[in-house]
C-alpha cells in the first residue's frame, strides 16, 4: 500500500498545505518588518506600544503608525494580493503564462485614466484623488473588456493576447504622452509620478476598497476552483467535461478587472507582481487551484511587502516608488519566462 496513488496524492497535498502555512508565516514576518521600517526612525518598542495603544492617541507616533505606516503596509498587502490573484486567473483563463495585468496593458489603461483625471481636474465632491481613482478604475475595466472581446473573436491564444497587450500598452502610453506633452510642466510631473506605483498615495480608503474587492473576488473565485483547474487541462477538455468555458471566462475576467482596478486605482502602476507571484506559486504547489489561489495571493502580498520595504530602505527623504522596484526585478523574470516558453514550443 506504500505507493498507492491515493496516498501519494494526499501526501503531496499535505506538503502543499505546509508550503501555504510557511508562506503565510513569512508574509506575516514581512508585514511586521515593513511596519517597522520608516524614515522617522521609531524604535520597535515604540511601534509595538503604539500599535497596542490603538488608533485614538494624539501623539505623533500614533499618527505615524496608524495613519501612515499601517495604511501603506495594508495597501501593500491587498494590492499585491489583488494583482497576483488577477494575474493568476488571467493566465488561467487565457491559458497563457505571459498574461498579467501589466503585460496585457490593463495597468497602462488605468494609468491613462488617472492622467485624464489629473489633467482635467476631475474631482468627486471636490476631492482630486477620488476622481483619479475612479477614472483609473473605469479604464482598467474598459481595457479588460476590450481585450476580452478581441480575444473572443480572434481566439485567446498566446500571440493574440500578448500582441493585444503590446498594442494596448503602446496606445495608452501614446495617449498619456500626449496629455503629458500638452499639460503644464507641473501637471505633467504629477502624471509622470502616477505612472510609477507609489505607496505614499495609500490611505485607509485605499485599504478598505482594495481589501473589499480582494475578499469578494477571492471568495467568488474559490467557488470556481475545480472548474478553473479543469481549464488548465485544456479548453476543449474542459468543455468536454461539461464546463461552460465561455461563461466561466467572462465571470473570471470581470472579477480580474475589478481586482486590477482596485489595485492600481489608488497607488498607480505596479508592474510584474501579477506575473511573478503566480509562477512562483505554481512552482511551489502545482496547478491545483485549491492551493494555487491562496498561495498566489499570499506570495503577491509578500513580493509587494519586500519591494516596499526595499523602497523605503533605499529612500532618503524622497520616496522611491515601489513600482520601479517591481519592474527592475520583474523584467529579467519575464525574460527568463519568455526564453523557457520559447524552448517549450
Amino acid at each position: 500500500m506504500e505507493n498507492s496513488p491515493n496516498l501519494l496524492y494526499k501526501n503531496i497535498n499535505r506538503k502543499r498545505g505546509i508550503v501555504f502555512a510557511v508562506s503565510i508565516f513569512i508574509s506575516i514576518a514581512a508585514f511586521l518588518a515593513d511596519i517597522c521600517i520608516g524614515s522617522s526612525g521609531m524604535s520597535i518598542t515604540d511601534i509595538i506600544e503604539t500599535l497596542l495603544a490603538g488608533p485614538n492617541g494624539e501623539t505623533v507616533n500614533t499618527l505615524i503608525v496608524w495613519s501612515i505606516r499601517l495604511p501603506m503596509t495594508l495597501t501593500c498587502v491587498f494590492v499585491g494580493s489583488s494583482l497576483a490573484l488577477s494575474g493568476l486567473q488571467v493566465q488561467t483563463i487565457t491559458n497563457n503564462p505571459l498574461a498579467s495585468p501589466y503585460t496585457l496593458g490593463i495597468s497602462a489603461g488605468a494609468s491613462f485614466g488617472a492622467a485624464i483625471s489629473i489633467t482635467f481636474g476631475f474631482t468627486i465632491a471636490g476631492v482630486q484623488w477620488i476622481g483619479t481613482a475612479i477614472l483609473a478604475f473605469l479604464f482598467a475595466i474598459a481595457v479588460s473588456m476590450t481585450i476580452f472581446f478581441i480575444g473572443k473573436y480572434r481566439g485567446l491564444n498566446t500571440n493574440t493576447l500578448i500582441l493585444t497587450g503590446i498594442i494596448m500598452n503602446f496606445f495608452f502610453t501614446a495617449l498619456q504622452q500626449y496629455l503629458q506633452y500638452s499639460a503644464s510642466a507641473e501637471v505633467a510631473q504629477i502624471i509622470q509620478n502616477w505612472s510609477f506605483g507609489n505607496l505614499s498615495r495609500a490611505s485607509w480608503a485605499s485599504v478598505w476598497v482594495s481589501a473589499g474587492i480582494l475578499i469578494i473576488g477571492f471568495i467568488i473565485l474559490t467557488k470556481f476552483t475545480w472548474k478553473l483547474t479543469a481549464i488548465t487541462a485544456g479548453e476543449e477538455r474542459a468543455k468536454s467535461l461539461g464546463i461552460n468555458v465561455e461563461r466561466l471566462r467572462i465571470y473570471t475576467f470581470v472579477i480580474c478587472a475589478f481586482l486590477i482596478a482596485g489595485a492600481v486605482g489608488f497607488i498607480g502602476t505596479v508592474a510584474f507582481v501579477g506575473l511573478v507571484a503566480p509562477h512562483c506559486a505554481r512552482l511551489l504547489v502545482g496547478e491545483d487551484q485549491r492551493f494555487l489561489i491562496p498561495v498566489t495571493t499570499v506570495l503577491g502580498s509578500l513580493i509587494m511587502l519586500v519591494a516596499a520595504s526595499t523602497a523605503k530602505l533605499m529612500s532618503n527623504g524622497s520616496m522611491l516608488p515601489v513600482g520601479i522596484i517591481t519592474s527592475i526585478v520583474g523584467v529579467p523574470f519575464l525574460f527568463v519566462l519568455l526564453m523557457r516558453e520559447g524552448k517549450g514550443k
Binding site: 524614515s39 522617522s40 505615524i64 505614499s200 529612500s315 520616496m319
Partner: peptide, 8 residues
C-alpha cells in the same frame, strides 16, 4: 518630484 515623506 512632488512626493513628500509624510512620516518624516
Amino acid at each position: 518630484d512632488d512626493i513628500l515623506d509624510t512620516e518624516l
